[in-house]
Write a protein that binds this DNA or RNA. Structure first.
Length: 922
DNA sequence: TCTCTGCATGGATCA
DNA sequence: GATCCATGCAGAGAA
């Protein structure tokens, strides 16, 4: 064991006693740590090197053996010994900002008080804390730092400190950069004392914290400790002569996470952390995975984190979901103008039974045992809890045995719940007012809330909710689109009030935020709340089943949200193959785009319509344009005549309204249809069905194959099961076996066969010279073509395909090969062997393109003009015709798009050509 | 018949 | 596998 001299030279301790030997640490002005094993928060080991020097460069808590590492670097980094004592990780040392950056606490405090006082506290160890008084200490001195002069004399006088104390403390303050040591209550888990987020350095290090990490996770605890060890006491160059101080007066940063036994003694005697720093910040636990991808800017955009790590009383380590998330407003509301200290204890999202008429609020066991009076009898004890308005509510705090454990409940909460108009999903927070010890119950309404996952809580609290958390993949790149704040503002409405509250600070406006929903900004995109972990969607648990409308809305809105995702601008994807699936992988996260609607002309040509954010006029755009979140007429480079908001609408207001109304109706219809289909599928799917699907494999694959949403088929949208949408874009992705009977292949085959059948039929009529040659194929095709019957179309199997007439079919294929290049033999009705020997290339998409090309066009291109006239007369009842755009033809052929029936989809490929048939996609 | 009470159940999560 | 906890449920008592 390599014991070092305490970094705090004033301490003078070179051989830490047993009371030191607890793993924990401090970061520069940011937070204190909890011993990962013993749970002590206030060991006075702040600046002492008490860890084993391991060969690996890691240090180990001499007490509990937990490894600690600097929080600034995710990977292992060795430590270096500082001249002033203590250790510092290499990573931190290389980072001129991280360790030496003046404490945000000090900075903030100085900025507010011009005093170099800074609350720090010591605390007794867990084992002997019951009778070990925390030595409160204050320092009095005037010292000059690089930026400011500190005068803490007034404070010291106020504390009645002796000159000796002052002298001792003076060095402490010098060394620690304007810090006042003071006994501190353990109310807050981790605190950042800044009013504003100070930047990435601290946050990134803070982000290393984790509840579990503190307690059990050794690997993570390493990160914690490294943060400790890398803490800076200010610029070491500024560390002046250090004088000794008694170990009993070893300073500690006033950061809670106290041991429990001393609760109620020390903390209530101590000056409040909040009293000293009325706007103390709660910070939170970090994600398990340190994620530094979150940009500095984005981190700095989360200034008001209030995820308070609850006091570790009774060593109960609460699940993060119970960590109280309290906003400034809530704090102020609870505390009022008094100097009382608010100790956020825990919170709970009300379940249905909690908010129900039973009047029982189930309390998390750990919370109940930690913060509520101990009870030994099931009858429990009456408990008076005050709400934020000061009204006192009387509950019965009790428990009943449950699985060799206890289930704690608050009974009689109905009047309170009703009074506060709380519902399931709302959150109640329990806090304690010190020193009075009163329990206070606050609440948050759950409008559009997102009960965050534990990891999300952590990540958000640490400003690292990046790729792996709630808003996966969404980070600062958003700012390249519409401004990060705008993005966050958009997110706000869908997030937990807590997070929303954080985001509020990035946007001065506290007004209600609506999601931009494509071209209809007035429609709030109802992004539904995320549920906790996997208990939300798709769970079999009854308790989480949503009613049909909710489910419908949830499904659809997420689809809609998904629609708005765009590949990151100017980002080139790399193609990776995962389980034989080629996936476009972007380095950058997706961005939100603007939603548009699409229309199709009779010629099959499509238009995209977008609404200007400023003038709300609709502009026609090419279909292949991807728009970012904000779009105005000035961005209309495709139509210079309408590149200004002053330019008139291309369509009249009425026409556009009709278009939009029809579009919306159609959307709803499709939503309902989709939902009904899903519901029926779900209803029909039992375990047997699932098992059968699993056995069949194919069905399973279909069930699990995500719909590929491609920008190449803008008329289609997520959820569309048409062949275009279920086919990997750009011909990428796995090729199907020629004998594959999956939906994709069968549809391709059907469509191709029908197409070819018609073509062949016409050709056979016209080309008498080839009549005999094609007659054989044609006759068979006539049989199958009668198949325009469902039977013929749907029961097509590979064997039948082989009978399809290889010779004739081959000639057709050859034609296509000649014109289109390689043919996807997967789609060749009778070329199984070939496909296996020669991997197809893009031909399926070619066929699809042909198949989806308006038949009229196709026929014309193939010299089958006589068919064209027929096709235009075939309508699709499910499509609607939009007002004709100026300059458009008068053709009224309906579109065969994915609004068409399945039969049309399969058989009537020539139904394309709807005039201005709207479809939505992004 | 409704409400309350105490406990059981089982899915989700944790270790 | 253990534990938590949301919810169900049966029995008792009240309306």
């Amino acid at each position: 064991m390599a014991t070092r001299r305490c970094m705090n030279a004033a301490c003078g301790v070179t051989e830490p006693g047993e009371e030191w030997r607890r793993g924990w640490g401090l970061r520069s002005g940011g937070f204190a740590m909890l011993c990962v094993k013993c749970g002590l928060a206030y060991e006075q080991l702040a600046f002492c090197d008490i860890f084993h020097q391991k060969e690996s460069g890691w240090r180990e808590c001499s007490s509990c053996g937990k490894h600690l590492h600097c929080g600034c670097i995710a990977s292992k980094s060795s430590f270096d010994l500082l001249d002033t004592g203590g250790v510092q990780c290499i990573g931190c040392m290389k980072n001129p900002e991280a360790p030496f950056m003046p404490s945000e606490v000090v900075q903030n405090f100085l900025s507010q008080h011009h005093q170099g006082v800074f609350a720090l506290s010591t605390r007794c160890s867990k084992e002997n804390d019951t009778d070990t008084a925390v030595v409160t200490r204050a320092c009095e001195m005037s010292t000059t730092t690089a930026d400011s002069k500190i005068d803490v004399g007034a404070f010291v006088k106020g504390k009645g400190m002796s000159n000796v104390d002052v002298e001792q403390s003076e060095s402490e303050i010098r060394s620690f950069g304007h810090i006042k040591w003071e006994q501190q209550s353990p109310e807050v888990g981790i605190a950042s004392f800044s009013n504003r987020y100070q930047g990435p350095v601290v946050s990134s290090q803070i982000s290393q914290l984790d509840e579990k990490d503190f307690v059990t996770d050794k690997s993570i605890s390493e990160s914690l400790a490294q943060a400790c060890l890398s803490m800076s006491l200010g610029n070491t160059n500024q560390v002046s002569n250090m004088e000794s101080c008694s170990t009993a007066e070893r300073p500690l940063l006033a950061l809670p996470m106290a041991c429990s036994v001393a609760e109620g003694k020390d903390e209530r005697k101590s000056l409040s952390f909040f009293q000293q720093l009325p706007r103390a910040r709660f910070l939170a636990k970090p994600p398990k995975t340190s994620n530094r991808a979150f940009s500095d800017a984005s981190r700095s955009a989360l200034p008001y984190m209030r995820v308070a790590r609850p006091p570790a009383e009774g060593r109960n380590q609460l699940l993060p979901r119970y960590w109280p998330r309290i906003t400034d407003q809530e704090l102020q509301q609870i505390s009022g103008d008094s100097n009382s200290t608010i100790v956020p204890l825990f919170e709970k999202v009300l379940s249905a039974s909690d908010a129900g008429r039973i009047g029982r609020l189930v309390l998390p066991k750990a919370c109940a045992e930690a913060y509520f009076p101990p009870i030994s009898q099931p009858e429990g004890v009456p408990l008076t809890i005050q709400d934020t308005k000061g009204k006192e509510w009387h509950f019965q705090f009790r428990f009943w045995p449950n699985n060799n454990s206890r289930m704690y409940v608050l009974e009689g909460v109905t009047p309170c719940i009703q009074s506060l108009q709380l519902q399931a999903g709302d959150t109640v927070t329990f806090s304690r007012i010190d020193p009075a010890g009163k329990l206070v119950m606050g609440y948050r309404k759950a409008t559009n809330t997102v009960p965050l996952q534990d990891s999300q809580i952590s990540a958000i609290a640490n400003g690292t909710f990046g790729n792996e958390t709630l808003f996966s993949g969404v980070n600062e790149n958003i700012s390249t689109v519409s401004g990060y704040s705008g993005f966050l503002r958009s997110l706000k409405g869908a997030m937990d009030p807590y997070l929303s509250s954080q985001l509020e600070h990035m946007n001065a406006s506290d007004e209600e935020i609506s999601w931009y929903k494509g071209g209809m900004p007035n429609e709030g995109l109802q992004l539904q709340p995320l549920q906790k972990r996997s208990r939300n969607i798709g769970t079999k648990s009854r308790r989480f089943l949503m009613d049909t409308e909710d489910a419908l809305e949830l499904k659809l809105t997420w689809e809609e949200a998904q629609e708005l995702l765009r590949p990151p601008p100017s980002a080139k994807p790399s193609i990776v193959t995962i389980e034989d699936h080629e996936v476009e992988e972007y380095e950058e996260p997706p961005v939100f785009g603007k939603k548009t609607i699409f229309t199709a002309r009779s010629s099959g040509e499509q238009d995209q319509w977008v609404q200007c954010d400023d003038c709300l006029k609709w502009r026609r755009l090419p279909v292949d344009v991807l728009l970012l979140l904000k779009w105005t007429c000035s961005d209309n480079t495709w139509d210079p005549k309408r590149s200004s908001c002053s330019a008139p609408d291309e369509l009249s207001h009425k026409e556009m309204q009709i278009l939009l109304r029809q579009y919306e109706d159609l959307r709803r219809q499709r939503m309902s249809a989709s939902f009904k289909q899903t519901s029926s599928e779900l209803a029909a799917s039992g375990l047997d069905a699932l098992a059968a699907a699993a056995v069949l494999g194919d069905a399973g694959n279909q069930a699990t194959t995500p719909y590929a949403t491609t920008t190449k088929h803008p008329r289609h949208r997520p959820g569309c099961t048409c062949i275009v949408c279920i086919q990997p874009p750009s011909g990428k992705g796995p090729k199907h076996d020629p004998a594959c009977t999956c939906n994709v292949c069968m549809t391709v085959k059907r469509r191709f066969k029908t197409l070819m059948m018609r073509k062949k039929k016409r050709q056979s009529e016209r080309e008498e010279a080839e009549a005999h040659k094609k007659l054989a194929w044609g006759s068979k095709e006539e049989v199958e073509g009668s198949s325009s019957s469902p039977k013929g179309a749907q029961h097509l199997d590979p064997h039948q395909e082989n009978e399809f007439g290889q010779e004739s079919g081959k000639s057709i294929i050859e034609q296509l090969e000649t014109s289109k290049g390689h043919i996807d033999l997967n789609c060749h009705p009778g070329s199984n062997e070939d496909s296996q020997t020669a991997p197809p290339r893009l031909s399926m998409m070619s066929l699809l393109q042909d198949a989806y090309r308006p038949l009229e066009t196709y026929l014309k291109q193939n010299g089958l003009t006589s068919l064209a006239s027929e096709q235009v007369n075939q309508g699709s009842p499910s499509s609607f015709t939009a007002p004709q755009a100026p300059g458009e033809s008068e053709g009224k052929a309906p579109d065969e798009g994915h609004f068409a029936s399945e039969e049309q989809e399969d058989g009537d490929d020539g139904d394309d050509g709807a005039d201005m048939v709207t479809s939505d996609a992004s």
